[in-house]
Amino acid sequence: MIWMSILAGVTAGVLLGVFVTLEIPAVIARYVSIALLASFDTLIGGLKSYLKKEFDEWIFVSGFLANSLLAAFISYLGDRLGIELYLAVLLVFGMRIFQNLAELRHALILKLRRVKKNK
């Protein structure tokens, strides 16, 4: 179920993105990409907690919005102040993505092992 849902999300997202011609203004493209980084972290975190059966939709949705908005805002602030604050965002969310991926991997392997044992 979960894999189907993600696959459907990826396919539909890519297809829609390819066919829709909506231009993101160059000024905010930077911030959108930073926000995307944060949102990917939340997605991987969400998947992980789903597999661990700890998923909470409120935590997930609020995290998705808050993280991406904060990430974009911090990099915007950095640009206004002349400090490369977006690097901090990149570093933090980059690290978190790897951490979450590692935990996801652990959860997946444990789950697969359990499935095997049950057979």
Partner: peptide, 27 residues
């Protein structure tokens, strides 16, 4: 609940992928 959660996750994956492709096209 698991079903709803899976769909929720898929939806957000959809949103992110959509934006990602848009950005890639823009760049």
């Amino acid at each position: 609940n698991r079903k709803i959660e899976a769909i929720l996750l898929g939806t957000f994956v959809f949103i992110s992928m959509f934006l990602l492709v848009l950005l890639a096209k823009n760049i």
